[in-house]
Design a protein around this nucleic acid. Sequence first.
DNA 1: CCCTATGTTCCCAA
DNA 2: CTTGGGAACATAGG
Length: 258
Amino acid sequence: MPELPEVETLCRQLCQVILGAEILETQVLDPKLGEIRELGGRKVLAMNRHGKALEMELEGGLMLLLHLRMTGRLLWQNGDGLPPHTRLVLSFPKGRIILIDPRRFATLSVQKKDRSPFCGGNLLEDFDPSHLWGISQKSRLPIKSFLMDQHRIAGIGNIYACEILHQAHISPWRRACDLSLAEWERIGGVTRTILRKAISCRGTTISDWRDLFDKEGEYQNYLLVYNREGERCFECGGEIQRRKLNGRGTYLCPSCQK
DNA sequence: CCCTATGTTCCCAA
DNA sequence: CTTGGGAACATAGG
């Protein structure tokens, strides 16, 4: 269930194995993904990530767009059998990329490379506290929902939203419009630190997440609140609580997040 | 049986 | 128009 650091991990690993390589064959094993045009014979010119979406630029002005949603996984393999729930196979001379997706929520499309359909800045380079403070003045959403709104800020999901707000000492229920510029600057700082660290750890493996080479991530060893209900806060010793916000499990330390 | 799940979209009500 | 709640998508696991 990948968020920005997990998708960034896949993007970098995909660059290692397929940049410049020629697609030999594409097989869509699940009709729900829809028909995609035959991509065989085209080389991969670039791999990019927008928020949680992957974008493969191909010869001939085409883009392959992939969103893994809840349970999508990508795996690089060399001709072994196909695991259960394999939905897509992209074959290359040195191996193949397969999409595994038990719940079948992942989406795939091929588009002309003209204008990217994505909005929301790249968090690693474009997180601009002043800008976000400005646009947040009009939103009464809880700050956690605001951070997870992919149209405004692309890439933050439930785990990292909990971690960011904890390290910024802000309650997930505060209205976005009530945050000060100084608080937005705090959010910006911890967001950058957390995402960079999580990327260097190749993501967070709570249950399902594996990278392109089937390895677990390491960031679960650095989580301060997520999945720690009932344990004590490393910072103040308070008890970590889990509550619901918009239907999502939300972890916080009530005594140091205000 | 119950509940939960790292995502997104849609419908409906206030 | 905004927001919030719930369901849907489809499946596995505790």
